[in-house]
Amino acid sequence: MIELLAERFNYIIVIILMMTGLYAVVATGNLVKRLVGLSLFQTSVFLLYITIGKVSGGQPPILPEYSESYGGSNAGETAMAAASPAAEAAEGAVSQGEALQNTAEAIYSNPLPHVLILTAIVVGVATLAVGLALVVRIRETYGTIEDEALNQADYAAENARRSA
């Protein structure tokens, strides 16, 4: 049991952080602080994805600049350009094989969660801005951003409308 949890410490920490954010969302009545809690929750979800993509002993998924297959090295290329197409194809195959070998030597962490979370962070701040804009408009209309005061203002308006 202890070993099972020790091997999965990342999930435990992520769950605790997530629940911290959820607590802030549920327990506070202040709308700005609720959005802060929501962004805590969001960051802990990002951490969940990235820790799943981690491979032990891995490197960041940036490959070394292996020579030919980038078409960067010029001397060999121009020499090959004069040669027959068949020879060129053979050269290409060799360099591709080298490239594959190069990537097989090192262990890389999984790049897919990185891509998903990278875009999610920027989308997250854009949607956070929409939420904050709504809060600002609510404050301008009601004069408060505490949810109980907002409810009372709504009930009062409703009662006034019914009695009229």
Binding site: P60, I62, E65, L118, T119, I121, V122
Partner: peptide, 12 residues
């Protein structure tokens, strides 16, 4: 293309 970075980071 060669190091960490890209349009999202640069824009921010």
């Amino acid at each position: 293309d060669y190091s960490p970075g890209g349009g999202f980071q640069a824009g921010v």
